[in-house]
Amino acid sequence: MSIISRRPSGWYERDAGGSAEDLEPTPAELAAIEAEWPLIEAELALLDAEIAALSAAGGPSPLDWRRVGRAEAHVTRVAARLAADAAARKGAA
């Protein structure tokens, strides 16, 4: 049996027979998660807004839709900023 994980570089398989240390994220993987954390946080805020809109009594209000729209715009801004930062690092390398 193997465990399939997602790395920033793509998919890979890791043998489940290894030690617990082998299953821990590497420092590079932790750094990648830390770098992407603003986007993860923005996506969680969008999910919260969508859940609030969908579970609102009587249906979503205009305020709920504005909240979803602001959250979507925030996700887009953060994703664009991360992409620009990644392109700048790649260009500097």
Rank of each mutant, 00 (worst) to 15 (best):
E13D: 10
E41S: 14
L23H: 13
S9V: 10
A84D: 09
G10D: 10
Y12F: 06
G17S: 11
P25Y: 05
A42S: 09
R89W: 03
L82A: 06
G91E: 15
M1P: 01
A49W: 00
A93D: 14
R67D: 15
L46R: 00
D15N: 04
A92H: 08
T26A: 15
R81V: 00
A86E: 15
D15Q: 09
D48K: 08
L63E: 13
A80S: 06
E36L: 11
P27M: 13
A93N: 12
A86P: 02
W65V: 10
A53M: 14
G69D: 15
A52Y: 01
R81M: 04
Y12E: 11
D48G: 07
P60F: 00
G17Y: 00
T26V: 03
V78H: 01
I33F: 01
A93C: 15
A83K: 12
Y12C: 03
A16W: 00
A83S: 10
R89D: 05
P60Y: 04
S9F: 05
G58Y: 09
S61L: 07
D48I: 02
K90E: 15
L30Q: 10
L44K: 06
A53V: 13
A56G: 15
S61I: 01
A35C: 06
E72W: 08
E21T: 07
I33T: 15
L30N: 04
D64H: 13
E41N: 12
A88H: 10
R81H: 09
P62R: 04
L46Y: 01
A93E: 14
I4Y: 01
G17H: 03
G58I: 05
I51W: 02
A79R: 15
L82G: 03
D85Q: 12
R7A: 13
A52K: 00
I33D: 04
A83V: 09
E43R: 13
P27V: 04
D85H: 02
R14L: 03
I33W: 03
T26L: 12
A56P: 05
D64A: 04
R77Q: 09
D64N: 12
S61D: 15
A20S: 13
R81Q: 05
E50Y: 01
A56S: 14
E29G: 05
A86Y: 08
